[in-house]
């Protein structure tokens, strides 16, 4: 394996670790906001690391730019969807989870 291959492997593994952490967070975190936080990490950093890892293997500048575009589009979609889910949850009166007050509570505004 050449130096570039090693760099690729490292970034791909780091990206996979972010995806794993994001998935564990999605399954284990207590409420919708914290789960979104975990999910967005996987999308932003996980996919970002994987794209960087793949950039070292790209045949041409065009292919590399396409990979970066894929990442930017996924970022925009992930940010928008996270906002929509969180906004909807907030408007339905789901209060953010707190360590000292377990469980989901409804706040006054609805």
């Amino acid at each position: 394996m050449s130096g570039l291959d090693w760099l690729s492997a490292i970034f791909l593994l780091v990206g996979a670790a972010f995806f794993l952490a994001g998935t564990v967070g999605l399954l284990r975190f207590p409420d919708v906001y914290t789960r979104l936080h975990a999910l967005a990490k996987a999308d932003n950093l996980g996919l970002g690391c994987i794209v960087i890892g793949l950039l070292f293997q790209a045949d041409s500048l065009a292919a590399a730019l396409k990979l970066v575009l894929v990442w930017l589009l996924a970022l925009a979609a992930s940010a928008t969807v996270s906002f929509l889910v969180a906004h909807r949850a907030w408007r339905r009166g789901i209060a953010p989870w707190r360590a000292d007050e377990p469980g989901i509570r409804r706040h006054d505004e609805s």
Binding site: A76, A77, T80, F83, L84, H87, R88
Partner: peptide, 13 residues
Amino acid sequence: ASLKVPRLLARVL
């Protein structure tokens, strides 16, 4: 107000 963000995304996409 909540449509602002998806609107931006739609305008880009």
